[in-house]
Design a protein around this nucleic acid. Sequence first.
DNA 1: CCGCTCGTTGTTATCGCTAACATAGAAGCA
DNA 2: TGCTTCTATGTTAGCGATAACAACGAGCGG
Lengths: 342, 342
Amino acid sequence: MSKPNEAPRAANMYDVARLAGVSHQTVSRVINENTSVSDATREKVQAAMAQLNYRPNRAARSLATARTKLLGVLASDTGQFGPASLMHAIEHSAREAGYFAVATSVDGRSRDSIAEGMTQLLELGVEALIVVAPQAAVLDVAKSLSMNLPMVTIDSSNRMDVFTVAVDNYSGARLAVRHLIEAGHKKILHICGPVGWVEAEARVKGYRDELQAHGLEVFDIVQGDWSSQTGWVVGTQLAKRIDEFTAIFVANDHMVLGLLHAFKDAGISVPTDVSVVGFDDLPDAAHFAPPLTTIRQNFHEVGRRAVALLLDELTGVESIRHEQIVPQLVKRDSVAAPSRQL
Amino acid sequence: MSKPNEAPRAANMYDVARLAGVSHQTVSRVINENTSVSDATREKVQAAMAQLNYRPNRAARSLATARTKLLGVLASDTGQFGPASLMHAIEHSAREAGYFAVATSVDGRSRDSIAEGMTQLLELGVEALIVVAPQAAVLDVAKSLSMNLPMVTIDSSNRMDVFTVAVDNYSGARLAVRHLIEAGHKKILHICGPVGWVEAEARVKGYRDELQAHGLEVFDIVQGDWSSQTGWVVGTQLAKRIDEFTAIFVANDHMVLGLLHAFKDAGISVPTDVSVVGFDDLPDAAHFAPPLTTIRQNFHEVGRRAVALLLDELTGVESIRHEQIVPQLVKRDSVAAPSRQL
DNA sequence: CCGCTCGTTGTTATCGCTAACATAGAAGCA
DNA sequence: TGCTTCTATGTTAGCGATAACAACGAGCGG
C-alpha cells in the first residue's frame, strides 16, 4: 500500500535524462551550453526539461563546482534613499552577469551585528563582497573576517587596501560651497552628517577646503545625523543666530527639509534671508519649499561599476582599483545672492 | 615541486574531525547540537573548529537535507519607503528564526520580469515565498510558477487562495476621510495611486464608502502615481478648480509634497484654504509645510507577522490565513475646519 | 558473572550535480 | 583500405554535508 503522490519530489537531472533517453551528463551539457551536443539531442533534452518543469538544483551545482554565483552585499541603513538605490542597482547588474546578489543589513555601530552579517554571508558561500556601509567600522570587520574574498567597498574613504567605487563626496561638497561663494556668500555654515560616516567626513573636508581656497572663514561645523528631525532641531537653534551667516551647506536633503520647516516657523525666508544647498537630490527635492538646489549622486552608476569591478577581479582581469563618480550640481530655487551685509 | 600554498581551500568537516581526533559525523553532531556528544568531545571539536576557522558549507548541507533555510522575497518598487521598510523587517525576523531572506526586485508591470525573478528564487531553492508587490499581476505569476511553495503576500487584496498580511488600507482610508468630515468638510477629493496597485484600490474604496456612509458626494478620483512630481502636476491643475472642494485625501505622502508645492505657488494655503490628509507617515512628513496629518502604517509589524505566518506554515502549524494591521491617524497641522462655504 | 540497555562514537550510503576520463562511430586523409 | 582525428555521448568519482545503521563499552539487575 504505497502512497503514490506523497511528496512529489521535484525532477532531477536523471529524471530528465531518462525521459529524453540520454545520460545525465548530456543533460548537464545542455544546461551549461557546454560543448558538442547535437541539435537533435539538445531539443529532446529541452523538451524533457520543459515537460518535467525541471530546475537545476543550485546547491548540488555549487557543491560540485565550488562556485555559488552569489554576490554578498553587506549593507547598513538600507532604509535610507542612498543605500536603497544602490542595492537596487547592484542587484540588477549582478543579475545581468548571471549572479545573484544577497543582501544582509547590519547595524553599522555594532561590531557584533556586522560580524553576524558577515558570517551569514560567508556561510552562504558568496564569491565576493560589496560593502555598502558608510561607517568605517563595517569595512574593518568585513576585512578581518573575509579571508581573501574579493571585495569592493562603496565609499570615499580611499583606503588603499580595498577596491572602492564611490561618489566623490569631497568634490561634491566643494561644488556646493563654490556655488554659494559664486552667488556672493561669505559666511557659509555647514551642517554635517553623523560621526563615523566616511561620506560625512569627506563632505566636511570639501567644505573646509573650498572655503579656505577662497580665503573665507570656516565656521564650527554643526553636528547633524541625516534625519529631518535633527534638521529641524538644528534649524530652530540656528534661527536665533541668523545674523552670523547668509548661507548653509547641508550634508543631505532630509536635514534640509527639517531646516526649512524650522526657518519657516521662525519667519526666515529661503533663499531671501538665507541660501541653502543640500546633498543627494532626493526624488522629492524638487518639491521642497523652495525647490532645493542640491548635489546629485548617480547611485545607479556606482552600483553598476562596483559589480563590474568585482566581476573583473573574480575573472582575474586587472582593473582600476579606485573609481570616483563625480556628482553634479542641480540648481533650483534655494540659492540667491545674499540680501544682508555681514 | 608542488606548490604548497596554492589556493588554500577552506577547512571542511573532515579537516576538523582529523584535528579533533574524531569522526566527521561527530563534528556534524556538534554543529547540529544533536544528540549525545560528551562534553569532552564537544570541546575538542569546538576548539578544532575555531582553530581552523571552520564554516559549514551551506550547499552541502542543503543537498543532504533538501532544506535551504532560505526565504524568498519577491518585491517590486524596493526604492519606495514602504517596500524598503518591509524588506528590512522581513530580513530581521527571518534571521531571528535561523532563515536568510533573499530578495529579488522585479518590475511589477512586466510579466517576464516577474517570471524571471521567480525562477531565480526557485532555483536558489527558497523554502517559502513572501510577495511584497502591490500589483496583482505579481501575485498571479508567482502563484502559477510556485508549485505549492508556502507563500504569503503582503497586500490587502484579500484573495482567499493565498495567505496575506496587510495594512488595512481600507480602514486607513476611511479613517483619513472621517477625520476630514469631522473637521466639517463636505467636498472632499481623492488623489489615488496608480492603477493595478491593490493598496491604491483599497484606499479608493475606503474613500468612497466613508463618504457614502455620511451621505456626501463622491467626486471623480484624480489619478496619481505615488510620485511627488505627479502630485505637483495634479496640484497645479487642481489649483484652478479650488472652488469645487475644501479638502483632499491623498493616497500617499510623496504626492502631498508635490501638491503642497503647487498650492504654495498658486497662493493656496494649507490648511486655511484647503485641508489635506496623506498616507504612509514618511519620516519626513512631520516637516512638510505644513506638518502633515497622515495615516501611519506599521511596516515592521507587517514584516514580522508575515515571516511568522510562513514559519508556521513551514512547520505545519495551523494559523490565521489573513491578518490585517490597523493603521493609525497621526494628527499634525494640515487639517482645519473649512473656511469657505461651498 | 552474564546478558541487556543505553550513551557515545564510527561507517557507509546518499543528496544532485560537474569534472575528468573513456568509448564509439563518422569523417578525413594518404 | 587503414589509420588518425574529431564529435558526440556515456561512465565513474568526487564535492561536503546528513541519515541510518552498526559497534563498542560502561553500568546495572538478576
